[in-house]
């Protein structure tokens, strides 16, 4: 038996999700959209992984796969070392595990049933899963609301009576109500006002520390993601192109796409206005007909002929074993390592 401390809480291996494209006079499958194409990563308990990428790169699909809203086309998802696909045959166990994997949605306006009072929204799952009983439910709900910073009076109200930020707090309370270990935060702040975003991010950070939660934080804004995450995975067209400790990844981006993303972040300093920046040309490719070889090569300022042929795997950035243990940093670009960085500067 392995030590549970060393088993990742969540591990996905070679995960793929293809959606059929229907067409023709008699509808049949004419192609596949490769929303998620061969993604692997693992998360230790208490860790926050940020998943960044442009819209349509498959980051939300990974989130939905993890909480069971979608079935993977291929690949495995492990929860505490147990394969979720084999667990599906055991509905009772599956239901128990489902409560452990929760989700916070992007749009706080559509994530609460408009016909239900907050009491019903929060209490029904808790009572169903016997996390609380009729005689203790009010005490439990009070504690829950206290955690997300809402007064008890919200219980008798309907969702339309709240602002976006308050709704998102209710959404967080719903995710927490089932005592989960892992929460997918699917762009939880991108629909909110900037002034509210910080509050919600801080709340998530506090709750994560307090409850030892493991978070998968999906976002397209690097700022928000880096604020809450210890590690970051950068996605492009269904695949992870760079993965590593947040600080290391920001300090030494090793993939041209990551570098372009970082350069696209505006810096509120006039002196920086003319800094050299690598901005991306063109549009994100189609995941129905992804480019051969490296997915990024048509937009890469720095593509070489061989990039068109083989898809580069993730590999360690630093070859020095002494430094490797200190941080993790993988990239899918073989030319992004220290040696080639000078070359990058020359081009940009």
């Amino acid at each position: 038996m392995q030590d549970t401390q060393n088993i990742p809480l969540i591990e996905i291996r070679n995960l793929k999700k293809y959606y059929p494209v229907k067409g023709g006079i008699l509808p049949h499958t004419v192609g596949w959209v490769r929303a998620v194409d061969d993604v692997s990563f693992s998360m230790m308990r208490g860790e926050t992984l940020g998943l960044v990428g442009e819209s349509g790169c498959g980051k939300s699909t990974i989130g939905r796969l993890l909480v069971g809203l979608e079935e993977p086309t291929e690949g495995r998802i492990f929860y505490q070392g147990r394969d979720l696909s084999t667990l599906r045959k055991n509905p009772k166990e599956m239901r128990r595990i489902r409560t452990r994997l929760q989700m916070i949605f992007q749009d706080p306006y559509s994530s609460l049933n408009p016909r239900k009072q907050i009491y019903e929204i929060l209490a029904q799952p808790m009572l169903y899963h016997e996390i609380s009983r009729r005689d203790t439910i009010h005490r439990d709900l009070r504690r829950l609301l206290d955690m997300v910073g809402l007064p008890e009076t919200v219980l008798g109200k309907y969702p339309h009576e709240f602002s976006g930020g308050q709704r998102q707090r209710i959404g967080i309370a719903r995710a927490l109500s089932l005592h989960p270990e892992f929460i997918v935060c699917d762009e939880p702040v991108s629909a909110l006002d900037v002034s509210i975003q910080a509050q919600i991010l801080n709340l998530l950070k506090e709750l994560q520390a307090e409850l030892k939660l493991t978070l998968l934080f999906i976002g397209h804004g690097l700022g928000a993601v880096s604020y809450v995450s210890q590690r970051i995975a950068v996605m492009y067209l269904g695949g992870i192109v760079e993965y590593g400790d947040a600080q290391e990844l920001f300090a030494h981006p090793a993939h041209p796409y990551t570098k372009a993303l970082l350069d696209a972040v505006p810096i509120p300093d006039p002196a920086e206005k003319n800094r050299p920046r690598q901005l991306l040309q063109g549009e994100i490719g189609s995941s129905a007909a992804p480019p051969d070889g490296c997915r990024f090569h048509p937009r890469c300022p720095w593509a070489r002929p061989q990039c068109k042929n083989t898809r580069p795997p993730l590999q360690k950035v630093c070859s020095d074993p002494a430094k490797q243990s200190a941080f993790s940093h993988d990239t899918a670009c073989p030319y992004g390592q220290e040696g080639s960085l000078s070359e990058w500067e020359n081009i940009s």
């Binding site: 809203l69 049933n113 029904q124 719903r174």
Partner: peptide, 26 residues
């Protein structure tokens, strides 16, 4: 396809709850 139905699914609620308590009232 609404998020509140997805939320109920993620919360592991049974089919009868989703059909008759989440969808039907709307």
């Amino acid at each position: 396809e609404t998020n509140f139905v997805k939320g109920s699914l993620v919360a592991g609620m049974p089919l009868r709850h989703i059909l008759f308590s989440e969808i039907l009232p709307n």
